[in-house]
Design a protein around this nucleic acid. Sequence first.
DNA 1: TTTTGAGTTGTTCGA
DNA 2: GTCGAACAACTCAAA
Length: 493
Amino acid sequence: MAKNTSTTLTLMWFRDDLRLSDNPAFYEAASRGSVLPIYLWDERSEGLRALGGASRWWLHHSLASLAERLTSVGCPFHIVTGAAAEIIPAIAAASGAVACVWNRRYGQAERAVDKAVTTRLQSMEIETKTFNGTLLHEPGEVTPKAGGSFKVYTPFLRASLALGPPGPPLAAPKTITAHDGPLELPGETSLEGLGLLPTAPDWSAGLRDTWQPGEPQAQKLLHGFLEGGLRRYGEDRNRPALPASSRLSPHLRFGEISPRQIVMLARHAGADGTASGEQVEKFVSEVIWRDFAYLLLTSHPDLANKPFNSAFEKFPYAKASPTHLRAWQTGQTGYPIVDAGMRQLWKTGVMHNRVRMITASFLVKHLLLDWRLGEQWFWDTLCDADPASNPFNWQWVAGSGADAAPYFRIFNPTLQGEKFDPDGDYVRSFVPELARLPARWIHTPWAAPRDILAAAGITLGKTYPQPIVDHDTARLRALAALADMRQAEQAEA
DNA sequence: TTTTGAGTTGTTCGA
DNA sequence: GTCGAACAACTCAAA
């Protein structure tokens, strides 16, 4: 690999874009001359949300993968710690960079940090240039004709599609020229030095068995999905036991793959007849939901804490019950589909989308616990915990979100289980103590005849819990709570 | 400006 | 067993 001190040096600040292909900032850096690629672990700047445990695990391996790939082409990757507004300018100065590039972020604190960095760099006469490397269309690109910003998904979707496809993805740079010179970077540390991996105890075995973070694996998953699950995506995507979803979410979260790459290749699969256009657009629409969540995060920076619909400030949640919360977190609610989902999450760092809705609805409506408790748990345990999608979807379930589920839509965990996991295969794979229960009873063990339970080796209340709440009772309680909220709202008006 | 129709993902009840 | 209506009211987008 050529090293060249005669070309200009550009600092490439990697963040949620841990890939080499279709990375506009990195492409720009490589095309300008030599590149100094860095990742900053910033626990110092104000307002940044600390990553959850599962995300930290993913980040570690994703950084390892990126570092290895850059190093293999002769371009060392640097990991630094510190507060961005100090450390980025310091690194630029120490390395003699003439420019600094990155892909934009959308959270309020992140934007503030990036702005502070820009100001510092510009005062040092170091050029800054930023790009959209994360979304199909950025907030502000998709706007209603009447002005303002979209608050309902369908019009947003139509407007997004009307813009036409985003530009074609960029290839990875053909040549990457490394910085050549003394490299004593301020704040430099090692990947291990970040301490992102769990130690005592090491709970990551299930994650290791399930995932391989990194751009090459993301590309491989995408291609496998396009040739497999996409064909029946519309029908099978709601069946948690089937391999019908793309499983790309954590890769997308850390930017190991770009939404442009996903959408373009999915549409190619539609064009060459691998899948029908209808299936392709269903899948693409899911990617556009992500853009919508980012739009809402931009207009409502406190999405993770404040109900989008302020009427929900008055929602009468039950007195926080540590017992119920704990039962939900650990998958001990007595509702098999709920427990399977929560255990899948704990074990693998991800949960099937359909089951996320069921478990989230259960927390908020059956247990009447604050959606923020659930959002925080998912934030800690999901590999794909996304700063926009996670709070956005929790608010959607809770009914407080943009274009949210109507309040009376209360998932019945039994019916959902029977409908979407009819054979019980999903339940069996994550709730082994029910594995020998026939499909007829797998979603209602409390109603199973005594001899059937005995034959399956189940003692309710001992080997598997009785339901911690009764569905009908809980449903009526949730409806009553919402009626109370409405009354409180009207009394005020 | 006003009006109108629509709005991811469901469940229950009664005819 | 099947089917349609009710479950609220409201806000938003677009004509």
